[in-house]
Structure formats: C-alpha cells, structure tokens
Nucleic acid binder design. Structure first.
Lengths: 337, 337
DNA sequence: TTTATCTACTACAACGTTGTAGGCAACAAA
DNA sequence: TTTGTTGCCTACAACGTTGTAGTAGATAAA
C-alpha cells in the first residue's frame, strides 16, 4: 500500500522504491534522493508486520521476569532497554508473578516467532525447564540473567552468588555473629542455593556449626513468610545474625524486629542481597550486597543480540559473572555484648 | 506454511483449516476436531505477523514511561500487564529517560501500526504535544496516566493531584509548619502544577503568605538538584516544612538533612508523593501521599482496550481520578518548638 | 420436476514487504 | 560485429494468514 503509493506517485516500480529505501547499490543516487524525499513527505514508515513476515525476523525481544516491583528488575529493564534502543529492537515484557504455570504459558506464546530472542529470569517455582528447552529447540536464542537454569547451555549473566554469600556471612561473623540464619526464597532457585553454599562454606571456614534449623525456606506467600520469620525470631535459640537471600525477606525481618522490639544490630544483625536505593536511610541503615542490576541487564541484552544477529554461532555458552558490592551499613555494626 | 502443513496432512484446503482453528460455523464439528487435534500434535501456533498483516491488528500495546526505577511505575506496569495478559495482548515497553527527544522518536516508531494503542506518562521535559497529536491523527488510541497532557482529548487516568496537594500542605500546617517549600519536578508537567495549586490554595486558606522563593523548580540533573535543596535548607529563612512533588526529591532532602545535621521532623517536616515500600522503615519514617499505582495501571489499560476494541466509539474523553492516601508517619510529627 | 435453501467445503485475492531473476540500455573489449 | 560487462530498473513470487466469493451436494419447498 504505502510502498506502492510512493511508487505510483513517482512512476517507479515498488521494487525500486523498496530498494531505494534500503539504500541498495542497484539504485542510482538520484532516484534514491527522490524516493527518500517522497518518503519523508508522505511520512512513510515500513509496515513492521509485512517486513517481519517476509524477513522472518521480528526485531523484537522478550523479557520474562517474575515482577517489576523491586529495585533489581527495574534497573535491569533499564539496561536491557538501553541496548535495545541502540540496536533498534523492541522490547516485550511478560511477568510470571513467580508462577511457573504462567511462565510456561508465556514461553509457549513466544515460540511462534513473535520474538527473535528471550531474556529470562525464572520464577521461584520453576522446577523443570522443559518449556525453556522447547524454546531452544525452536532455535530461539535464550539468555538467562540472575535466576538461571543451571543445567541448560544457554548463556547466563549473574553475579558472584557463591562468593557474595560467603562474604556476607563472613561479614556477619567478623562483626560478632555466632548463630546466623539464612533466609532462602526457594529451594529450586540456583541463586538461592549458591548463596546458601557460600553461607555454609563461610560457616565451616570459621568453625561454626551448620544448623539446618537456621536455614529457612520460604513459600512465596507473604503471610506465611512473615510468620516464619516471627517464629525464628521468637524462638529461644534466636539467631544473632540474619542473612536474607533477597530484599523482601530483609524488609520483613525489619518489620518483625520492630514488632518484637528487637534491636538491629544489637539483638540481631541483618544483611541481604538488595538494590534498595533507600537502604542507607532505613532505621537502621541496612548493610546490603548490591548487585549491578543495570549492568546485568545491559550485558544480558548484549549477549542476546550477539546470538540473534549471528545465527550458527550458537555454542558460545557464556557464563558472565558481574561482581556485587558489599555495602557496609549499620544493620551489621559490631556491638558489645 | 504451517497452516498449509496441517492442510496437506489432512487433505483439506488451508482455508478450511484456518476456519476450523478459529471455530467458524462454516466448518463441521468433526473436521474441527480433526484439525484441532492435528494442530496440537504439530504444536501449531499462528504466525503473528501474517495474522497482524492480514487483520491490521497487532494485539499489542505500547507503554511509554520515563523510567522504571521507582516504586510507582513498577506497580503500574504490573497493573497494565495483568489486564493485557487477561485479554491476550502483548506489552511493548519504551523508556524516555525524561528526554523529550526520545519520546518523540518513540512515538514516531509507534505510528506504523506496530501497536493497537499506547499508554503514556510523559517526560518531565515534554513541553508540546505535536508528536502525540500525530498518533491521534493516525487513529492510534492513546491513554494518559499520571503525567498527562491536559489540553488533549485522550482519556486520562490520574490521582487527585490538586486535592492531595492541598491535603499534604494542610497536614504540614496542622502540624505546625509556617514556611512550607514546594519542590516541583517540572514546570511543564501538569501533575506538578496541580499539586502546586493545591499547595497554594491550602496556604491561602490558612492565611499563610505565598512566597515564590519557596517554590523550587528542579532541573532533572541530580547534582544541580541536590545543590538547590542544599541552598534551600542552608538559607537563613529556612523552611520548616517541605512538600516534595515527587519521591526522588524527598529522598534527596533526607540526605541533605543528614548532611546538614538537620533533624526531621524537629527542624523540617517532610511529606511527599511516594510509593516507597520502605517509607515506614526510613529514619524517620516518612509521611507520604501514596498513589494507587497498580490500580492506575489497570484502569488505564482497561480504558485503552475499550478504545482499541470498539473503534468509532472514540469520543469518550474520560478523566478517571483514583484517590491517593495520605499515610501519616514520623517525618511530619508535631514537635514542640 | 424445478427452484430455493442449507451445509460443508474450496479457490483466491488480498495484507505490505523483500529478494531473486530478468531485461534493456550503454559502453568496453574482443 | 559480436560478446561481455556494467548500471539501473522492473516483474514476480514468496512470507502465512484471513475473508469473500463461489461450488458442489443434499434436503426442502414449489
């Protein structure tokens, strides 16, 4: 239609116009100029569907994440979008709400060529990866970030979960903690497990016993989760240090501490993985392991575009690790006791 | 291709298959069952581009926002996505980074039929709305949320900015403030202006003078902005109350107060529009006007889908207002002085 | 019997691009 | 003069759907 419009107005074939618009060497400079001028005049825009249908490319990627409501996924999207905008790609966003069924449904939808590639951070619940393997089989490039599926070949961009977990734990130990609890979001999530392994290794390194009752596995249900924290902090063998694998659990810990009149850091010290911008303004300010969220987003997107643009070059099963920073604040301050 | 595959395997014409898949009454139940079974067997998915090209519908909407990195736009996306998922729509996301040039470029891209509708919250910088009017001219439904363009006819979903502004100001006055500063993000943004008008009306209602030196217009540049706050709080005629039109400015105020050793709420009281989940855990906990972000997202999306699905029914220029809540916390607590 | 009305299908032309194959000059090399 | 070789353009068939128009065959009404 529109291509044809330009063509008829200029008395050219629409092949010529199409080529002129894409700056083909088959077209003389003079006609190119003519066409370009006309195109601008008529405010011509290529029809993305016709183009995608013909070229079998969508110039679109999907980002599949559990939620947007925290300070991690926001900057990640930011990073992804910044690269996508540079490359002229479009970004579709899908939320799983930590629900594996939704994740499966979403990946099913993505199998039909709507997108050229997928960036994903899996849900807490995701236990098997059939749906993701199906994507791979359909040759749709897949890049994991943060919450990865360990046994899949696709590239992964994460932070140094194990080391960060160990560092966080050591930080608590150095500041006087003897009984450190680990709050895990999910037993199936590799980030949670890696962080926990770091935690365990730090304990053994410092000759502290590994007490499984101090590893709490959460359900995802806010009420139950809060109750779990409450019980932990009310128990006679209350921990003196809490390492939350995830921001939400630390916030809830703060709230329960207030409720139970426990003082942070005197009664319990708290550290967690978090990108909270206001961590320094909390009462008390919270020691965090801050992930380079924006960079993770950019890096993951960059790798995805590499895959998308050079097919055949599949097997670069990269594992990119971007280090997190431990930001020491008052919630883990050494106290005399 | 794929439609044809099913057709040849079943010895049917591909029209028949197409119709069977879309449950047309022209097709007998028996063949429908046959086709559906085959489709499931072959894991058939309609090609979205072919379909969109043919139907001139994309089943996709765009969300254009300044940033994702705060606790307002996150939940908004959540709300939008929830409705989109229910309706089987896809959500493209574009960030303007508060840059009008980017906003213009993005809306240009959206003119080519890639999306059936657009949800937008304009950037701080956006001074004129030519680019948005162009969208309307191309008959692409547009719904504003939060940061709207007042003089355009498109539906708008906002909170009660004027009243909330007045309430916030009165709250400060009632708690003892006499010199209240208003921190405005942008002079061109209607939300900022409406909130300011609320602020002014509350001042006059309580017989307080309107002092233009207490209305600070920010630039968007973090360093300059902080300096503006610093100067305000260092000035001999320091305000005793601060009403920030936006979360970021309140956080910066907190930081500067710490730097200048000013006590909140004793020296200055602070209130702001914010959806910060940790507002209650800040030191001191921050009084906020909390916007129903999720609901704004859902409502805006719902209106957009109404427009998208019944063309011709354009002129319903709705203005939907969803009330915010003033959550009283310690940053505005009455102090004796 | 003819004509009308169903039911269940098929044929086919769009939708707007893009890439390949082809054509026809003009000029150069043989 | 023939044969290549460019340079610049056109024709046309895809890409995978979908809706309209059309066609049989069967049943019902005249």
């Amino acid at each position: 239609m529109t291509l044809k419009q330009i063509a008829t107005e200029l008395n050219l074939s629409f092949s010529t116009v199409s080529k002129a618009l894409r700056d083909s060497h088959e077209i003389s400079e003079s006609t190119k100029k003519l066409v370009l001028a006309k195109a601008k005049e008529l405010n011509y825009q290529v029809n993305p569907f016709a183009s995608s249908l013909r070229k079998q490319k969508s110039k679109t990627i999907a980002v599949v994440i559990p939620e947007v409501v925290n300070d991690f996924f926001g900057p990640v999207i930011n990073g992804i979008e910044s690269i996508a905008q540079e490359k002229g790609y479009h970004v579709l966003i899908y939320l799983t709400h930590e629900d594996m069924k939704k994740e499966v449904a979403i990946t099913k939808i993505l199998q039909n060529g709507r997108v050229d590639g997928v960036l994903i951070s899996i849900s807490e619940q995701t236990s098997d990866a059939m749906h993701l393997q199906e994507l791979e089989e359909k040759e749709i490039p897949l890049v994991f970030f943060d919450r990865v599926v360990e046994h899949m070949d696709s590239p992964k961009v994460t932070t140094d979960d194990y080391n960060s977990g160990a560092n966080a734990t050591e930080h608590l130990i150095e500041n006087g903690c003897k009984r450190i609890a680990f709050l895990s979001i999910s037993q199936s999530l590799s980030i949670s497990n890696k962080r926990m392994n770091g935690y365990r290794s730090a304990l053994t390194k410092h000759n502290l016993p590994i007490d499984d009752s101090l590893v709490i596995n959460f359900t995802g249900n806010d009420l139950t989760d809060k109750e779990l924290i409450r019980q932990l902090l009310k128990s006679p063998a209350r921990p003196d240090g809490i390492f939350a694998s995830v921001e939400k659990l630390a916030i809830e810990t703060y709230e329960i501490c207030e409720e139970l009149q426990l003082k942070i850091p005197a009664d319990v010290k708290v550290i967690c993985f978090s990108n909270l911008k206001t961590a320094g303004l909390l009462s008390p300010s919270m020691t965090t392991i801050t992930q380079p969220a924006y960079e993770i987003g950019r890096e993951a997107a960059a790798i995805l575009f590499k895959l998308v643009e050079k097919k055949g070059h599949h097997f670069l099963l990269e594992k990119t690790v971007i280090n997190s920073k431990l930001v020491e604040r008052n919630s883990t301050r050494k106290t005399d006791s």
